[in-house]
């Protein structure tokens, strides 16, 4: 059962943006040549700040957005341009949970109908069987079967998110993208939903893509984590490796920025403004170089760093010239010292 379930190759999404009344349009690359292998049964976290393209990438993976270029393979099959029956089969196996539990349910539809909708479109069972499946799913996500006849406004945010999860899972998909599923919820409710997702992922052996901006939440739920910056993946590693030894300077910056977990762990921070460059006018070379503490002029600002494993760590991928080179010398040093 192991192996790659979803593979994105050079996936790119461009948008045309008006610059102003007289300045014409510009092209923004929301996702820029992303290569990503997602393994069957894993939970992979996509993390980054606003504008990094994580939501766009997630939506392309479930084919709610058409890529401008690049390829998506699902279960060994190219699904980039599938239509008709093949697309429908893809939709049965690939689902999405949305961020905002208030806008992801049709306010005029009873939740039982919203949840039964996937079954209806895929011709599963008759009306009674569908009702029974909905009732079972409601119980599975921690609600009551009698809730099926109610309307969304009768539920709290956390309950609505349970309904959204139930709707995504009712067809027993193999692959689910959860797009910031807890960031709109109250803190005390977030944990319930995270626990529920983790349980269901185990129980149904799902492959889960967890899109979020909260690093602690991503660390909690993911097996592997991909860090995105301005449309590119800059680092991809096992959870424990990424968080204990971040390699890309942007990953380091992100982790440093997270507030202390205890008042005794406070540390001084830099108050100077250092902001995301405009995606309309991205920097040349490494996209991170204008904010980078270790950038080397004449190199980082000219050549785009590829996403490569550092020599010492084949399981990690980093897009940083300096770190890759340091990695080479480090292996050399370690080799020396072992003698």
């Amino acid at each position: 059962m192991s192996g790659v379930i979803m593979r994105a190759s050079a996936l790119t999404k461009e948008y045309q943006v008006r610059r102003g009344a007289l300045k014409g349009t510009a092209t923004v690359k929301a996702v820029n040549g992303v290569n990503l292998d997602i393994r069957r049964g894993e939970t992979i976290g996509l993390v980054g700040e606003s504008g990094c393209g994580k939501t766009t990438l997630g939506r392309m993976l479930v084919k709610l957005l058409e890529p401008t270029s690049g390829k998506i393979e699902f279960d060994g099959k190219d699904v980039t341009n599938v239509r008709g029956r093949e697309l429908k089969e893809f939709r049965r196996r690939v689902q999405i949970v949305f961020q905002d539990p208030f806008s992801s349910l049709d306010p005029r539809a009873r939740i039982g109908d919203s949840m039964a909708e996937p079954l209806l479109h895929h011709g599963v069972g008759d009306k009674d069987e569908r009702q029974e499946r909905v009732a079972k799913m409601l119980e599975m996500v921690g609600l009551h079967r009698s809730h099926a006849t109610r309307f969304p406004h009768e539920f709290s945010g956390g309950q609505r998110q349970r309904i959204g999860i139930g709707r995504a899972l009712i067809l027993r998909p193999d692959f689910v993208v959860a797009d910031e599923p807890v960031s709109a919820l109250d803190v005390s409710v977030q944990a319930q939903i995270l626990n529920l997702l983790a349980d269901l992922q185990q129980e149904l052996s799902l492959t889960l893509v967890f899109v979020a901006h909260n690093l602690a939440v991503v660390e909690h739920i993911s097996d592997r984590v991909a860090v995105m910056y301005l449309g590119r993946i800059v680092e991809l590693a096992e959870r424990s490796e990424l968080f204990s030894r971040p390699t890309h300077p942007y990953t380091e910056m992100l982790l440093d920025a997270v507030p202390a977990s205890h008042p005794r762990n406070r540390r001084p921070r830099a108050p100077e403004a250092s902001e995301l460059p405009s995606p309309l006018d991205p920097p040349a070379g490494c996209l991170f170089h204008p904010r980078c503490p270790i950038f080397e002029a004449g190199f980082c600002d000219e050549v785009v760093p590829p996403l490569h494993p550092p020599p010492s760590e084949p399981s990690r991928l980093v897009a940083c010239h300096v770190r890759i080179r340091e990695g080479q010398t480090r292996t050399f040093d370690e080799g020396e010292s072992q003698k």
Partner: peptide
Amino acid sequence: PYTKGLMGSVPVLGDPRPRLEAIPGTV
């Protein structure tokens, strides 16, 4: 108990727990 619950329900960076202690119910 609410303060304790809040602290148990928030994942802490660098200290991944297998399971969060969720506060049941809603506000």
